[in-house]
């Protein structure tokens, strides 16, 4: 399996993140989370539901990019106009996203960097649905380049999604459904299972050390490494290729390195 790429390893790790016995919507934004969600549905978590990326529910995850003769087979309908009622505000969803900043509390930012709210230095997307996603349902993250620019010291510039920050909680508010699951990066897999939801490293990708991860993270990590992140097997690779026939995954991580790297 020496030709497995790091992106494929990450897809496999993302698919594990989506593992569930519930019937919930799996949303993976970007090639690696999206193929990971599809892989989860087609292997260990058949209850997962997903859309064609627009408005229809499909039982066969739709491959990425131009589809040629492939016909989307619609099994149901979940337009944006029903999404909050059905998926988000009932907690029946697990989303995997790539925010611009993440802090030690799991708070994320994809709205703005620097400056003020009236005049940000860099305007990004806006908070989108992150506030609602974070207060209502499970969320995970995929970060293709693990660095202190993403995993920031202190707190994120603008809290777009709720995390485990006690200072951000108002008395009487219901924070029970904040459920930050895993963060898959190009170096490791992390979760929020440490004391007071501290971020832990739970597996390292082949050739990566805990110190290497710590050095490129802006906050202190708990070493809870149980071993190497698992490589996808032959069957998983076949499905990954079916879900990403144009190999968009090759452009996700710089230089598209193999999963088994020599230590740099």
């Amino acid at each position: 399996m020496s030709d497995v790429t790091l992106a494929e390893l990450c897809i496999f790790a993302c698919s594990e993140t989506f593992r569930t016995d519930r019937e919930i919507i799996a949303t993976g934004i970007g090639p690696v989370p999206r193929v990971g969600a599809g892989l989860a549905k087609l292997t260990h978590s058949p209850g997962l539901m997903m859309t064609d990326g627009e408005a229809y529910l499909v039982e066969q995850p739709v491959p990425m990019g131009p589809r040629g003769d492939y016909q989307v087979k619609r099994a149901g309908h979940l337009p944006f106009s029903r999404f909050f009622d059905s998926a988000v505000w009932t907690g029946r969803r697990h989303a995997m996203v790539t925010p611009t900043q993440i802090d030690r509390f799991g708070q994320t930012n994809l709205s703005q960097l620097g400056g003020t709210h009236h005049q940000p230095k860099t305007q990004m997307l806006g908070v989108r649905g992150f506030p609602g996603n974070s207060i209502y349902h499970a969320n995970s993250m995929f970060i293709p380049f693990h660095s202190k620019r993403t995993f920031v010291e202190g707190e994120v510039d603008m809290v777009s999604s709720a995390g485990y920050n006690p200072a951000k909680r108002v008395a009487g508010g219901n924070y029970d459904h904040i459920d930050l699951q895993q963060m898959v990066t190009n170096l490791c897999v992390m979760d929020f299972g440490g004391p007071d939801n501290a971020v832990r490293v739970i597996s390292l990708h082949p050739g990566v050390t805990f110190d290497q991860v710590q050095e490129t993270t802006g906050f202190e990590l708990v070493d809870a490494v149980e071993g190497e992140t698992a490589l996808p097997g032959k069957d998983a690779l076949v499905i990954i290729n079916q879900l990403d026939p144009h190999n968009y995954r090759a452009n996700v991580i710089r230089d598209n390195p193999p999963a088994k790297r020599t230590v740099t």
Binding site: Q112, T116, H118, Q119, Q123, V127, G129, F130, G132
Partner: peptide
């Protein structure tokens, strides 16, 4: 982005569902 980064508009930023 240009308008925001120039501080030209007032904003009320909301979640999509809000």
């Amino acid at each position: 982005r240009k308008s925001r980064e120039a501080g030209q508009i007032e904003v009320l930023e909301l979640d999509e569902g809000m």
